[in-house]
Amino acid sequence: MGEINEALIRRIVLEVEKKLEEEEGLIPVGVSNRHVHLSEEDLYNLFGYGYELTKFKDLSQPGQFASKETVTIKGPKGKFENVRILGPVRNNTQVEISISDSFKLGIKTPVKESGDIENTPGIIIEGPNGSIEKDKGVIVALRHIHMPEDYAKKRGFKNGEMVTVLSEGIRKTAFYNVLVRVSNKYSLEMHIDIDEANSSGLKNGDKVKVVRK
């Protein structure tokens, strides 16, 4: 009974803390390292026809997961091995890297909203069953906030608007041009890449505050 009560108390405390943070306008941070999203066709080309990704762990966004499978990505100057594939499969293959990664690969990579792969560089992706050469699909993901509809409506945020986000700490930072993406499929979280996290001293789970310009 004591263990049950303790678990219930912990859950209540966490829920209260989350509510207070939301009331204060605080949003948790998710730091994104380099990763790959594959189309079904490209998954088959790399791992074999009919292959299905194996879930390694769930991610913060509902239905999204990190798979056990990894690939090698190669550019004109360098490569990265053991790059994690995120599931489920998508309509189009997309490789998300940081600006620092682009230097090692030897490609000039634009900052883009996830899903927008037009006018982006290509890359070679190697898997255990073969390799593919994509003529586009590599981006540095535009920093953004995944926001549930009820949260956005309550606070007056609109899908596609740009906001400013402030972080505290020894490397206190103002992030400008943060894209708001609103959907009931989302869990509240701001996504930044590893370069942005390192420069601002942020890590997964840290809280930041959204302000309007």
Rank of each mutant, 00 (worst) to 15 (best):
E6P: 15
S200W: 11
E52G: 02
F56T: 04
K154M: 06
E126T: 05
V208S: 00
A197Q: 00
G87F: 07
A152L: 04
V36I: 12
G63C: 04
G205V: 11
R90T: 04
I99R: 05
V31W: 02
G78Q: 04
I85Q: 01
F103T: 07
I124T: 07
D195N: 05
V83D: 03
R143Q: 09
V29S: 00
Y49W: 06
T173H: 10
V138C: 12
R11F: 12
E69R: 06
I97H: 12
L166H: 13
P128Q: 14
P76G: 02
N198I: 14
I73F: 01
E24H: 15
G137H: 11
G25D: 05
A197P: 01
G106A: 05
E196D: 09
D193W: 05
Y49V: 03
I99L: 11
E118W: 14
L53M: 12
K153P: 01
A141T: 03
F56N: 11
F157M: 14
V111M: 15
I117T: 11
E168R: 07
D195I: 10
S98F: 02
Y44N: 07
V180T: 07
K79L: 09
N204R: 03
E6A: 15
V178Q: 03
N45K: 15
V71P: 03
L26D: 08
E113F: 08
Y51K: 10
L8I: 07
Q64W: 10
P148G: 06
S100M: 07
E96M: 11
G201W: 09
G115H: 11
N184G: 04
I12S: 14
N159F: 08
G201C: 13
R90D: 03
L105G: 03
H144F: 10
V71T: 01
E196A: 02
L43D: 08
R212Y: 10
E15R: 15
E81I: 10
S183K: 00
G130I: 02
K203Q: 15
R212T: 12
D42M: 12
M147Q: 02
P76F: 01
E196I: 06
V29F: 04
I9L: 14
V180M: 09
K112E: 00
M1R: 14
G48W: 07
D150Y: 14
V211K: 05
N5K: 15
N5Q: 13
N204Q: 11
F80T: 06
Y44H: 08
S67D: 00
G87A: 06
E149I: 11
A66T: 05
S100E: 07
S131R: 15
V163Y: 02
I132C: 07
G122E: 00
D58S: 09
F103Q: 07
G122N: 06
K172L: 13
G130C: 05
E69D: 02
E52L: 05
E15I: 08
I12H: 13
K79H: 13
V111F: 06
N33H: 15
P88E: 04
E113M: 11
Y49M: 09
S67Q: 01
V180K: 05
L142Y: 08
I12F: 14
Q64Y: 09
E22H: 13
